Simulated assay, not measured.
Amino acid sequence: MGTGSIVDHRVLVAVDGSPASLEALRVGARMAGLFGDRLVGVSVWQSFRHGILPSDSRHPEQAAEQLVTTSAIEAFRDGVVPPIEIEAVEGDPADNLIALSHFASLIVVGSRGHSGLSGLLLGSVSSAVAAHAACPVLVVHAPVSTPAAPVSELTVDQRIVVTL
């Protein structure tokens, strides 16, 4: 970790509702359990631009918080939703995750998310975070067809170990 980092025993998971971010929630929950850390779902919202208002009447921060809640329910629909803290922040997703990385033991991001320019920028947030974060970053892909197995069902050979 870089100098000036203060680890807060949190596994941060970037949540945007995409299939890859749902898998990131599942993997993040397993990693938080293995590390004994808190699981934090991070959703980023952006201010109104060009006079365009969102389709619903909620404040964007409330919508971002709700996105984490509904994503957690979807990600763990076949089991129990683990305790998850919610952090909704305003601004650029990569910049915010990089800033938050100074206070985390791990960041888990999906390899692809929802982007306004999905054809051009797929993976841009995960790439930026992996390149500039102050803590380890785990990039996960969306599952092809089967959900991730609970950590209790994994053998030692199937577990991911990240060492620094």
Rank of each mutant, 00 (worst) to 15 (best):
T70G: 09
A72S: 14
A72Q: 03
I73K: 15
I73N: 10
D78T: 07
D78A: 12
V80H: 11
V80C: 08
V80G: 05
P82K: 06
P82Y: 03
I86R: 13
V89M: 09
E90P: 10
G91H: 10
D92I: 03
P93Y: 03
P93S: 10
N96E: 15
N96W: 04
N96Y: 04
I98W: 00
I98S: 00
A99E: 14
A99R: 12
S101P: 07
S101K: 02
S101A: 11
S101M: 05
F103Q: 15
F103S: 13
A104E: 01
A104V: 02
A104W: 00
S105N: 10
L106G: 04
L106T: 06
I107R: 02
I107K: 03
V109L: 13
V109P: 02
V109N: 04
G110I: 01
G110N: 04
S111Q: 04
S111E: 02
R112H: 11
R112W: 02
R112F: 02
G113A: 03
H114C: 09
H114R: 15
S115N: 11
S115P: 03
S115C: 07
S115G: 15
S118I: 11
L121Y: 14
L122C: 09
L122A: 12
G123Y: 03
G123C: 08
G123I: 04
S124K: 12
S124H: 10
V125S: 00
V125I: 08
S126L: 01
S126P: 03
A128Y: 07
A128D: 15
V129T: 10
A130Y: 04
A131T: 15
A131E: 14
H132K: 12
H132S: 15
P136R: 02
V137K: 00
V137H: 00
L138A: 05
L138C: 08
A142Y: 02
A142W: 01
A142I: 04
V144N: 12
S145K: 09
T146H: 09
P147R: 12
P147T: 13
P147C: 09
P147Y: 08
A149L: 15
V151I: 15
V151G: 04
V151K: 01
E153C: 12
E153I: 06
E153W: 08
T155I: 07
V156C: 07
V156Y: 07
D157T: 10
D157Y: 05
D157H: 11
Q158V: 07
I160G: 14
I160M: 12
